[in-house]
Amino acid sequence: MTPDPASPPPPAPSQPTIEPSPAWSGNALFWWLHAGGWGGVFLVNYFSALANGKPAEYWTVLLAVATTGFLGTLGLRYLLRACADRSPVRVAMLMIVPVLVIAAAMALAYKLVTDLDWCRQCLPFTRFGYFTYTISQLYVLVGWTSLYLVMTTWRKLRMQTEAALAATAMAHQAQLKMLRYQLNPHFLFNTLNAISTLVLDRDNATANRMVQGLSAFLRHSLDNDPMQRVTLKQELDAIGLYLDIEKTRFADRLRVEVEIEPACWSALLPSLLLQPLVENAIKYAVARRVEGGTIGLRAAREGERLLLSVLDDGPGWPALDHGGAPPDTAPRGNRVGLANTRDRLRVLYGERQRFDIRNREEGGFIVTMTLPFEAGGAPRE
């Protein structure tokens, strides 16, 4: 049981727009952090000054200094944003002069307020005090700059992570859709040929029944969301539509046996997972033999696992009896359906699934799939 080449994959799905996170430096969060930070600096310095014997009027000096720092670092923000594409070392070098200028401006604000006699008792004891005050503000400015760089770097990394996750999800969905839409053109070709033959033979009733069956199957396969899982009952109903078409072609040469444990009818699986395997069996175990053949569909539950099997009583795959290669290294006409089904399971379930193929001892070929047993609604793949 091996598949024919699949039809070309459908056009790539349109990519959803990735909405980036809003820039923390341009929204309310920045202003809360910025204002709260400088407000905290003001309060810490004021209470520290009171504890060291400064007069209550010292708040005027500290308010002027904090306001200068507040406005100065706003300008520093635009410089940092302009240097966003540079290396961290270059950014640090470029920020040295602006930080020194803002620190000097804060010391100047300190001197102007004290010179206006608003707080004569706040004057430093020596001129060197102004210099030490300027140096002390460098700690605050370097801390502000470092925090800004850390947060902007974190934001960039988060956006890159979100974009990578979105791209991975889109690739995952595109792969599932491509695998799901790989319908074998030979099925349509053979069915239309059979309908044409029936029309030429004036067997209009059979031809009409075959057209209706083909229409129902195509409507089900194309209207169904390829990202949706279905219950085993729904899957077998869809396979029934397909087999009705093939039974019109092969009549009594095609025999189907279904063995499903009652607990498995509500189990979930990818839609139209079994169709390419059934089509394989028909091509290699039924169509090529005068006496036709039997196809079996089985489902059983083993603990938390669902076991699905598609088997036939045809000639099997001789290469497997001689240590043959797996499906994806076989000739192209022998690999698409098996590889398609195996890849769908691998993308959806990862290491939680198994896909096995072998020849049966009593003759024929069998594909066995082991999936996690899930029942209930139909969550998206």
Rank of each mutant, 00 (worst) to 15 (best):
T152E: 05
R155N: 01
Y130T: 06
S136R: 08
Q160T: 06
T132G: 09
L138P: 05
V142D: 00
Y139L: 14
Y130L: 10
Q160P: 01
K156I: 00
L149S: 02
T134A: 15
Y148A: 01
V142H: 02
Y139C: 12
L149Y: 02
T161Y: 06
R155G: 04
Y148T: 01
L149G: 02
F128C: 11
V140P: 07
I135G: 12
F131E: 06
Y139S: 14
L141N: 01
L147G: 06
F128T: 14
L149H: 02
Y148V: 00
F128H: 10
Y130I: 11
V140M: 05
T145P: 01
L149E: 05
Y148D: 03
W154T: 05
Y133I: 08
K156Q: 11
G143W: 00
G129R: 11
T145Y: 03
Y139T: 15
V140W: 10
Q137D: 07
G129N: 11
V140H: 11
V142A: 07
Q160M: 08
L147S: 05
T145Q: 05
W154R: 07
I135K: 14
R158P: 00
L147Y: 01
S146I: 07
V150C: 06
T152P: 00
L149V: 04
I135E: 14
W144A: 02
G143Q: 02
V150A: 10
K156P: 01
I135T: 13
T161G: 07
T134S: 14
Y130Q: 04
T161D: 08
L147H: 02
W144Q: 02
G143D: 00
S146H: 02
Y139G: 15
Y133F: 14
M159G: 06
R155T: 05
T134H: 10
Q137K: 12
L141R: 05
L147D: 00
S136P: 04
R158E: 09
L138F: 09
T161K: 09
Y133W: 13
T132K: 15
M159L: 06
Q160R: 12
K156N: 06
Q160E: 13
L141G: 01
Y148R: 02
G129W: 07
Y133C: 05
V150R: 00
L149D: 01
G129F: 14
Y133P: 04
M159Y: 03
F128P: 00
Q137E: 11
L147V: 12
Y139E: 12
V150N: 00
V150D: 03
T132R: 15
M159A: 08
R158H: 08
V150F: 07
V150S: 03
T153P: 06
R158S: 11
L138T: 11
V140R: 07
V142F: 08
L147N: 01
T153K: 06
T132S: 13
L147F: 04
I135L: 15
Y133T: 09
L149A: 09
T153A: 12
L149P: 01
V140N: 09
L141E: 04
M151S: 04
I135S: 13
S136Y: 09
T152A: 09
M151H: 04
Q160A: 13
T132Y: 15
W144S: 00
M151I: 13
V142E: 00
V140Q: 03
T132N: 14
L141Y: 06
T152F: 03
R155Q: 13
W154K: 03
G143M: 05
V142T: 05
V140Y: 12
M159K: 04
T153F: 12
R155M: 07
T161M: 05
L141P: 00
K156A: 06
G129Q: 08
W144M: 03
